[in-house]
Design a protein around this nucleic acid. Structure first.
Length: 809
RNA sequence: GCGCAUGUGGUGGAACGGCAUACACAGCGGACUUAAAAUCCGCCGGGGAAACCUUACGGGUUCAAAUCCCGUCAUGCGCACCA
């Protein structure tokens, strides 16, 4: 078969007939299949695109044939740094390169032969899309979920922009470029994602997502249950600390503030001022990596002030140290050196008392330092309580006196979305000298990103240099005002695109609630695991926030999530230009066609695992399709054959039913490799049947028809062609997934494995439906079994499924 | 450091606690052919005469373990002073 010719033929026909156009009015049950949309890069589609889009397309086709009204849109996540960096290097404007890249990619994606409904396409860098991204921002602002704040932020000196916590890798480097991240004090826009911390956590239980991804989100949200304790300084100034160990409250021998804490200046005594200032400077200089290292030596400085422990009135010194994080809890920690390794280290260095308050049941102290639970000692009225009881008792006592109480803290921080870059969605806010920060009225959106901007990086927002853009008037008072010079994090654009797909041409609203509620949530979402704590958290936040604002009516965006694995280069490393190990799909597609290439990706790897590229098996897939083609031709020629009854209920019928069932199950689980293996077995069985003589033409035709149908999702062009050649009506994708005959799944003969003491000794084939006793009797008669049992007596015989285990001794 | 996952032939990879190595690739042998390609058929974990031994390694649970439990090692991923 001339693959390239038939691919073109069918792609054209599919497009002309609008085969994959989504029908909103269909009575069938909807099914929303979505792959994470892609960044429009200038390069050709790489193996990863094929692996993600091509394989998921097979799943979408399968769902369609199963009778669902499948919604399968595609679009482009088009704002972002690569286009801007490319522009800085080449002088080609990001808008120009992006539009050109999108066109190229659209063309290539169409050549993949996937079921995307291009009618609903979105491109996030176009005003008709980002107008509504800005609208989303305004809604969040109006509902108190967006705020502006000066704060220490993660700054990538290479990308010249702020990063969200989620975009800083655990080694303190930029997620995008690998440069060590520094800190900067900036006033930035933030989204109050922390408001949804609890629901983002509890909602995970309702999702059919990889456990690992759920766990990562869970850890990222980082819920800690503990308590807060109100301390006072000697001069009566109150502050609170968060602790997960209220049972150690009697062991507090000092208190530490983070160096950035706003109260530090106030509590520093004049004598200590110089020392504290010096330390603050020292701490500010430390890089994020240094500061986050748990092996970093504990350092600090004494403020000169003392705090009163509310539980026992004890006076303890107040220090500052950069081992205390400004952004977690209250930014202040109670120092319990006996029961916390970090506090122990700090106290040892500064000669602070270390006093055990947790011990064994008999009252003996734990060896120090120890964070183990135990029983309270040296704790007055609380002595003898277990840590668990003690936590509750101490907090209850504090609560009664208004000195503290239970408290839950999350590790999750608010999402900083301001970016000091050009190629992004402008922030629809105005800074007025009289009215302050004022939102742009919704009917004035979109706030367009100006085209002519000098975006050479200099550490400030490029838009600042564009006076035309920056100068405006205040929407409230009309006075001259300035726009916000930053753009939004591109994760903002991708937090709601799956909603826009449902209503992508709407120019009156971001989406129509009815349409979104009808199509969402996404039933199956497929994309890389690297988004676990970024896009996949942000999108969940958006859905919850817009639900609460009344714009939609569901709780979670993605009911089921599948991560495809990564296809590595032949050398086992991630494919990259710099390594020179990039495999181009094109060479294979030219040689074998896109169906073969897609099928090889399905057959040669476990989808979830991915693996090292190796094309050894690609010929096997080509060979398989050729075998199918020859078989279809023979079946056609044999249509009139026979007439004689052939063995109905025979091996072929069994394999046929079993294959239909197995392939369907495998597809639902994204186990493409085993599905194809089953089809190969089926084809082998069909050849056996055809070569075996006694062929019933109608029986054969029906069996081959089923083969084409189950193969269709995997090799769409190929099967559409054979379907036509067989004389069936267009299109194979309007056919239903074949039913199988349940009765055929029961074989008339069953093969039993016979074990003696768990070791296989013989295999016997018996008619189906024998009683356990009959099977046991037949098993015992086997010579090999007799030999193994020789001289021993039977203790027990187990007959389960198709195993007989004779226990002797 | 903490958490999670993974470890199966020469290779990619299969196996609701139930006959380990399905389906393929590669390799070997054969048929067809003047020959090659293509196609078709057979063999294909190790060792051996046999008994046996094999799912990273060592224990355990079970009639039965690649699968469950404990420990070790290796690899990958995530988090990393979160009080």
């Amino acid at each position: 078969m001339d693959y390239n010719r038939i691919e073109e033929k069918w792609q054209k026909k599919w497009e002309e007939t609008g085969l994959y156009k989504f029908d909103e009015r269909s009575k069938k049950k909807k099914f929303y299949v979505l792959e994470m949309f892609s960044y429009p890069s200038g390069a050709k589609l790489h193996v990863g695109h094929w692996y993600n889009y091509g394989l998921t397309d097979s799943y979408a086709r399968f769902k369609r044939m199963q009778g669902y009204n499948v919604f399968h849109p595609m679009g482009f996540d088009a704002f972002g740094l690569p286009a801007e960096n490319y522009a800085i290097k080449t002088g080609i404007h990001p808008m120009d390169s992006t539009i050109a890249n999108i066109e190229t990619m659209e063309h290539q994606l169409k050549r993949m032969g996937a079921t995307f409904d291009w009618n609903t396409e979105v491109k996030t860098c176009m005003p008709d899309y980002y107008r509504w991204t800005q609208w989303c921002f305004l809604q969040l602002y109006k509902h108190g979920l967006a705020y502006r704040k000066e704060m220490p932020v993660n700054w990538c000196p290479s990308c010249n922009t702020t990063l969200a916590n989620e975009q800083v890798l655990s080694d303190g480097t930029c997620e995008r470029c690998g440069t060590p991240v520094t800190r900067k004090h900036l006033t930035q826009w933030c989204f109050r994602i922390t408001k949804y911390a609890e629901e983002l956590l509890s909602g995970l239980d309702t999702l059919d997502w990889p456990e690992k991804t759920k766990l990562m989100q869970k850890n990222w949200i980082g819920k800690s249950v503990g308590g807060e304790v109100f301390f006072k300084t000697e001069s009566g100034r109150e502050f609170s600390v968060f602790t997960t160990r209220p049972d150690t409250l009697f062991g507090v021998t000092y208190v530490v503030f983070s160096p950035e804490h706003a109260m530090v200046d106030e509590i520093t005594t004049p004598e200590q001022k110089a020392e504290i200032e010096a330390y603050k400077e020292y701490a500010a200089k430390a890089s994020e990596i240094e500061r986050q290292s748990s092996t970093r030596e504990k350092t600090g400085a004494f403020t000169g002030s003392y705090a009163i422990n509310p539980i026992n009135g004890r006076k303890v010194p107040i220090y500052i140290s950069d081992y205390v994080l400004a952004t977690y809890g209250t930014g202040i920690v109670m120092g319990v050196p006996a029961h916390d390794e970090r506090d122990f280290e700090f106290a040892t260095k500064y000669g602070l008392p270390i006093e055990p308050v947790i011990g064994y049941k008999d009252g003996e102290a734990h060896p120090l330092p120890s964070h183990e639970y135990g029983y309270m000692i040296n704790s007055g009225e609380f002595n003898g309580l277990s840590s668990e009881e003690g936590k509750k008792a101490v907090l209850a006592a504090l609560k009664e006196k208004g000195l503290g109480g239970e408290k839950v803290t999350y590790r999750l921080r608010d999402w900083i979305i301001s970016r000091q870059r050009y190629w992004g969605c402008p922030i629809p806010m105005v800074h007025c000298p009289h009215c302050g920060v004022v939102p742009i009225p919704e009917d004035q959106l979109p706030l367009k990103l100006p085209y002519d901007v000098d975006f050479t990086p200099d550490g400030t927002s490029p838009l600042l240099k564009c006076e035309e853009f920056m100068n405006t008037t205040c929407p409230v008072c009309g006075a001259p005002a300035r726009r916000d010079p930053d753009t939004m994090d591109t994760f903002m654009c991708s937090s709601w695109y799956f909603l826009r797909y449902c209503d992508s041409h709407n120019d009156k609203a971001a989406w129509d609630r009815e349409k979104v509620d009808a199509l969402c949530p996404v039933d199956t979402y497929v994309g890389g695991a690297e988004h676990a704590c970024m896009h996949l958290i942000y999108a969940r936040f958006f859905v919850k926030a817009f639900r609460d604002m009344g714009y939609l009516d569901f709780d979670e965006p993605f009911l089921r999530l599948v991560h495809q694995g990564t296809i590595l280069g032949p050398d086992g490393y991630k494919m990259s230009k710099s390594r020179g190990n990039v495999i181009s799909p094109d060479t294979y597609i030219q040689k074998y066609g896109s169906d073969v290439f897609r099928m090889y990706l399905q057959f040669g790897f476990a989808y979830i695992e991915g693996g090292r590229w190796n094309d050894d098996g690609i010929k096997s897939v080509a060979r398989f399709l050729e075998r199918v083609e020859r078989l279809a031709e023979r079946a056609k020629g044999l249509r009139g054959a026979n007439a004689k009854e052939d063995a109905a209920g025979g091996e072929l019928d069994y394999v046929r039913a079993n294959t239909i069932k197995a392939v369907g199950n495998d597809l639902d689980r994204f186990q493409f490799n085993t599905a194809i293996a089953r089809m190969m077995e089926y084809v082998n069985a069909l050849y056996k049947y055809v070569d075996g003589g006694a062929v019933n033409g109608r029986h054969l035709e029906a069996a081959v028809k089923d083969l084409l149908l189950i193969l269709a999702p995997f090799a769409p062009h190929f099967t559409e062609e054979l379907w036509e050649q067989a004389g069936y009506p267009y299109s194979i994708f309007n056919q239903e997934w074949p039913q199988y005959d349940e009765a055929s799944l029961t074989r008339q003969e069953v093969e039993y494995g016979v074990q003696v003491n768990g070791k296989i000794r013989a295999r016997i084939t018996l008619p189906a439906g024998l009683s356990a006793e009959e099977v046991e009797k037949a098993a015992m008669e086997q010579q090999a079994v007799q030999n193994a049992m020789a001289g021993k007596s039977v203790r027990k015989v187990i007959v389960v499924r198709n195993i007989v285990n004779i226990v002797v001794g």
